[in-house]
């Protein structure tokens, strides 16, 4: 996207509209960002401390945001994630061409005014394919993340709270899953359930939840011995209540941080599966599949855009989520509250 050449004047109208909303929120955000930075230089500290003292909640969104925005890279990551989500939601309005429409007379065309990222081996518009791929990446990435976290937190809390044989069984099971090479395991699962988006998600959840579960278990093991959990028991709280009200809110932060990192992992994993030809069906635009198609053109001069564009999309998405996770790590850490 950064290598995008400036659209020359007098291009067909279809070429411009997608770039406008694409550039616009970015501009707005960066303007807002500089405003905040200027404000924080003058009175940011006093505002932040005053707000913190008044609202006080360690979980208050304002408090988390005030710590999050100190990390400029994380703010940038958040902006990119927002842009990708925007593209994923409004894709029909942002794409000049139907990503499925082939034009065999104009294959592997380099970026031009008509096709800002060029065309692929079947003459389809690369930019449109990338935008459609963004939806798939977000649906699979975020969907897998949510499901992995829900399953992982449930089993992790159960293992950590119950301990004993429940813990042993769950944790040995996660050991087995984590011992599988991710791609080999995922190929195995996809072969069982057949090709499609859902089997890919299932495969990635199966191999994604154990890490959340381990994190949650560790937190739960520590917190179940804490005095406030004992205090809750001393006033007659049931196990369910203790886990949901007293352990979960205090244990969830590291899991959330990990979950955001895992979105990038999922996007890469899905692309890898597609590249290997076992991922989503061939008729679905997918970043990994785009790279796979360009495999034979890698050494052809002038065709770099075929693999560079989808690869950049994957890299940028993965990095953006990693930056967000990094920002959350600091923002959600109650130990840093009131510090700095």
């Amino acid at each position: 996207m950064t290598t995008l050449p400036p659209p020359p004047e007098g291009t067909p109208a279809a070429g411009i509209p997608p770039t406008e909303p694409f550039a616009d929120p970015d501009g707005l955000h960066s303007a807002g960002q500089t405003d905040q930075r200027a404000a924080s230089a003058v009175e940011g500290k006093t505002v932040a401390t005053r707000r913190r003292r008044r609202s006080g909640s360690p979980g208050a969104l304002a408090d988390i945001w005030s710590r999050y925005k100190r990390n400029k890279l994380a703010v940038a990551g958040l902006v990119i994630v927002a842009v990708i989500l925007f593209m994923a939601i409004f894709q029909p309005f942002l794409t000049p061409y139907d990503p499925f429409e082939q034009n065999l007379l104009n294959t592997t065309a380099p970026p031009s005014a008509d096709h800002i990222l060029g065309t692929d081996v079947l003459g389809r518009d690369m930019y449109s394919a990338l935008v459609y791929g963004a939806r798939l990446a977000m649906v699979v990435g975020i969907g897998t993340m949510l499901m992995s976290v829900i399953v992982g937190v449930a089993f992790g809390a159960l293992a950590g709270y119950k301990r004993g044989w429940v813990d042993a069984v769950i944790m040995r099971f996660t050991d087995i899953l984590l011992a599988f090479p991710l791609l080999v395991g995922a190929i195995f699962v996809v072969r069982i359930f057949g090709q499609g988006v859902l089997p890919v998600v299932i495969a990635l959840v199966i191999f994604g939840w154990p890490t959340s579960a381990r994190l949650m278990r560790g937190q739960t093991l520590a917190l179940r011995e804490s005095e406030y959990v004992e205090a809750a028991r001393s006033i007659g709280a049931s196990d369910t209540r203790i886990v949901l009200r007293h352990i979960l809110p205090n244990a969830i932060a590291p899991v959330v941080v990990y979950a955001f990192t895992s979105v990038g992992v999922v996007v890469v994993a899905m692309a890898s599966l597609s590249f290997l030809g076992v991922g989503v069906p061939a008729d679905v635009p997918e970043w990994g599949r785009l790279i796979s198609q360009s495999y034979n053109f890698i050494r052809v001069p002038g065709n770099e855009h075929l693999w560079l564009a989808p690869a950049m999309a994957i890299v940028i998405t993965t990095l953006a989520f990693a930056f967000v996770a990094d920002g959350l790590r600091d923002a959600l850490d109650p130990k840093l509250r009131g510090g700095n």
């Binding site: 005095e227 007659g236 109650p334």
Partner: peptide
């Protein structure tokens, strides 16, 4: 029954920093 009976048997803990859930008012 034990949970009900806890109304009559209470405890004050040693560490006031650890005995209150930080996420509750």
């Amino acid at each position: 029954e034990l949970r009900k009976a806890r109304a009559d048997m209470q405890i004050v803990f040693q560490d006031p920093y650890a005995s209150l859930n930080p996420r509750l008012t």
